[in-house]
Amino acid sequence: MIFVFVTGCFAIWLKDLVASTIILGIYSLIMATIWVVLDAVDVAFTEAAVGAGVTTALLLFAIWLTGKSEKKVNRIQWGAILGVILTGSLLIYGTIGMPDFGDPSAPAQIHISPYYLQNSLAETKAPNAVTAVLASYRGFDTLGEVTVIFTAGIGVLALLSGFRKRRKREKGVIQE
């Protein structure tokens, strides 16, 4: 937990963006081990592959295209710090009402999860309850997720290809 906090801080603090990205990858890997400790093995797989792998690759690609160091800013923004501390303390005040860590009688555990755990094997024949819920009970959510990825892909393609055409046109003007 504390490791996660420290790596998170470093990722923000470093001015060199490549180092910052690599530290973010380490942060994701530590996060993946925390998911295993918290029994979320499927999430750990995804975090290790997507968080530590794809995100790092995407960020490195972006840094390669946009330049690798941040401008030095010496002033500390007290307004931002004040706002953050205020929000944080309000949220911590909110956790007083939250159930204790791992409490079996917490509201999240007694409403719908027992149904999934008891019936998913019989109804979907998938021993992994996460898979059963993802692909069967909440199949429409997964469809929505695929739609989001598709839209994002189209968005990125539209952004970058539109630019390339414009630059070609500008070059054409210069040649004339």
Binding site: A108, D141, I149
Partner: peptide, 17 residues
Amino acid sequence: SPLPHVLILTAIVVSVA
């Protein structure tokens, strides 16, 4: 509980998007 795991699996992929 499997339900938060499912939601977060979806959220991780959406966050990359």
